[in-house]
């Protein structure tokens, strides 16, 4: 904990920015895990909720001069409302149909944002500095002290939700919705609730993300981003709080590193040579997509519980060593 507080004072600014970025993703992963990992409902459209959070927060602050916290809260509630609405058809849908419906939702949101003038169209919106009352948060360091505590609170809130009655109801739906119903769980209510909670988390994260990056446009919220969110949950470990945190951190780290993959010593040079010979150098950053794809496939084939599964196995190994 004290490490988290001291961190921005001892490390270069880029790493502070990186931690902010990771924290935002951890929030999304946490919410998405409640939906996918705990309730067993898939979503391939979380970039849509993320976008709603970002755009609504920014517009409320810039156009209506609403204070930051109020704007963020309204944006997250709006995202949750969209989540609730999207969750309604989900009640009657099984896996494949739900995946398709959420995919369509994510794509439709981007279409609408990209075409409407109020959202800045394809060009996007510049985000002004975050201000809390009279204070303006100018640097990544100041943002850090805003974002990290919120992340910690949201992660603990999620942990508490899944550990108590609501969480058990969600898991019961995942494992057997029929038995859940006959044990008195209102499946309709809890499924839509799970959608709303995870959309709320994505909305908050979206609102914070806008300030971390400083600029938003439709291109930042594509289908690929939805898959990236999904891979955080899958890689971290479905149905585990620690897993969502690990997955969020790991995938965001990888994403940042792979954006400039050609500058990684050794590996990057090798890739540049391969690119010149067989592929194209301009297309090199797309390697991140290949790596994420491979990770997703390997996780399912090797360890469906993800990093959390590896962690459990390692722990078991040490506990029982040398047997």
């Amino acid at each position: 904990m004290s490490g988290l507080i001291a961190f921005p004072f001892i490390s270069p600014n880029y790493y502070v920015y990186m931690l902010n970025y990771m924290a935002v993703n951890v929030i999304v992963a946490m919410g998405l895990n409640i939906l996918i990992g705990y309730t067993g409902q898939i979503s391939l459209g979380h970039a849509g909720f993320f976008a709603i959070g970002a755009y609504v927060t920014v517009l409320f602050i810039d156009k209506l001069h609403v204070p930051f916290f109020a704007a963020l809260f309204v944006a997250a509630l709006l995202a949750a409302a969209f989540g609730f609405v999207l969750g309604l058809p989900a009640l009657r849908l099984e896996g494949p149909y739900l995946a398709i419906a959420t995919l369509g939702f994510g794509m439709a949101i981007i279409q609408v944002i990209g075409r409407a003038a109020v959202f800045g169209g394809r060009n996007g919106l510049l985000v002004s500095k975050m201000s809390i009352g009279p204070y303006v948060l100018n640097t990544d360091k100041e943002l850090y002290f805003m974002i990290i505590p919120m992340t910690v609170i949201l992660v603990f809130a999620a942990r508490n939700i899944v550990k108590t009655r609501v969480g058990r109801a969600l898991v019961s739906i995942r494992d057997s919705d029929i038995a859940a119903e006959t044990m008195g769980v209102n499946v309709t209510y809890y499924k839509t609730l799970a959608f709303a909670i995870s959309a709320f988390y994505a909305g908050i994260a979206g609102g914070l993300y806008a300030f971390v990056i400083g600029f938003i446009n439709p291109g930042s919220f594509t289908f690929i981003l939805s898959i990236l969110f999904l891979s955080m949950v899958v890689v971290g470990g479905l149905g585990s709080v620690l897993g969502a945190v690990m997955g969020g951190i790991f995938i965001s780290f990888l994403n940042l590193k792979l954006e400039s993959v050609q500058y990684i010593p050794g590996f990057g040079d090798m890739l540049v040579i391969i690119s010149k010979k067989w592929m194209s150098v301009t297309g090199l950053p797309n390697i991140s997509s290949i790596i994420f794809g491979l990770i997703l496939i390997l996780i399912v084939v090797i360890e469906p519980l993800g990093l959390y599964g590896f962690w459990i196995r390692t722990k078991k190994y040490w506990k029982t060593w040398p047997f």
Binding site: I224, S289, I290, G293, L296, I297
Partner: peptide, 13 residues
């Protein structure tokens, strides 16, 4: 679904 999404990303990349 995750596997097919994985291939989606690999092929796209």
């Amino acid at each position: 679904i995750i596997i097919t999404l994985g291939f989606e990303m690999v092929l796209y990349g």
